[in-house]
Write a protein that binds this DNA or RNA. Structure first.
Lengths: 204, 204
DNA sequence: TAGATTGTTAATCGATTAACAATC
DNA sequence: TAGATTGTTAATCGATTAACAATC
């Protein structure tokens, strides 16, 4: 298979979300033109993106919504339940845990860790906050493959190292700090402070 | 001035954060090579990015850290205090309000809104949650120019519309929904569900 | 001076968009 | 059949990187 660029992969979840909205509204078919209009994207881009993975459309007709949902879910590996570990039981960690419902059942935070003595043993929803020294064992026994970092910047690299050692394959880092990991581990940064700072540039 | 691409603007806060780290460690000068190594970027890119805004370096020497911090802060308009309004006093909204300390004093959430009756009047740090019908007046009286959306997806567009009507210039949207605003308003999406979904693609 | 590093042009690389034959 | 829309190539656009003269 050709190498798929990260830009393409990042658009797939947006397509999926849009398709789910159509599905809820019982819309059976969608064209790349509809698609582009609603998402503010170029129709050719949407056709090209989807075509990296197969011929999902019908000429003259468009794309079948339920079929395309199924296909994108397969591509993104969202047709299986993905277990997620979160480190950092602060405000942001709490907020993300409570978001579980929004993530549907295919992404689930199943373990939470923190090394603050006051946090360990406390409960978030139905999860009990565990100490960091239990990370590797839990990751392996629960088949967790994705890790979320919601600790302060100064701790982020340590947590990333612990994730790597535990065998995590992908990391979503909310700490305002670039973390370094081996090339086979995928990292996304979700740092809202840099987002906010770059927004300020556009103020008049 | 030439048009600066968004990619460049998004890197400036990362440069700024790195420079602040150097400053704390009393490092006076930095070269684009050091820079690139620490941030995992190409040195030429860093020189080119900075050079869009002026000649901040010295040939043979590098960049003076405090001077470059000052310059980037000016470019990003972070040399003034920017007032921010947040709509959606849920878990995520709370978390972001408590993050204020991390944002230094140049970005400050100064008003919080929600339309849930149980939330109105409740307190987050030293802020009292206000009803949405007070948005425009507060935005104008407090000279708020940036808005944060932390409501459910279904409410996101309504809040965006209200922000636009109130005269907000830039929006950071955490809701998993693309919002549409007039072209003169700048929007960044900080949607962790799409981040997480695209990460799953890279699982083996 | 010699070594280092910027500023900046030119070359490369990659991503987006336009266009259209194929075909439902 | 006529109209619509995909799949896909070619053209365009934009961003990154290499290279090096200028100069501290």
């Amino acid at each position: 298979m050709k190498k798929i660029s990260e830009a393409v992969v990042r658009r797939l979840p947006i397509y999926l979300r849009f398709l789910n909205e159509l599905h809820v509204r019982n819309i059976q078919t969608v064209s790349s033109r509809d698609f582009g209009e609603k998402l503010g994207m170029n129709p050719a881009q949407i056709r090209k993106d989807l075509n990296y993975f197969g011929e999902f459309g019908k000429k003259g007709i468009g794309y079948d919504v339920p079929y395309l949902i199924e296909k994108i879910q397969q591509i993104l590996k969202l047709d299986q339940t993905n277990h997620v570990a979160l480190v950092g039981a602060g405000n942001l960690g709490h907020a993300l845990c409570n978001y579980n419902i929004y993530l549907k059942s295919n992404m689930k935070i199943t373990a939470v860790f923190d090394d603050f003595p006051e946090k360990i043993g406390s409960q978030i929803n139905n999860l009990i906050v565990q100490p960091m020294n239990e990370l590797t064992e839990t990751v392996q026994s629960q088949k967790i493959r994705i890790g979320i970092i919601t600790v302060p910047a100064i701790e982020a690299q340590n947590v990333a190292d612990a994730f790597v050692k535990a065998g995590i394959e992908a990391i979503l880092n909310f700490a305002p700090k670039i973390i370094k990991v081996p090339p086979e581990i995928k990292v996304h940064h979700a740092d809202f402070t840099t987002e906010l700072h770059s927004l300020a540039y556009y103020l008049d």
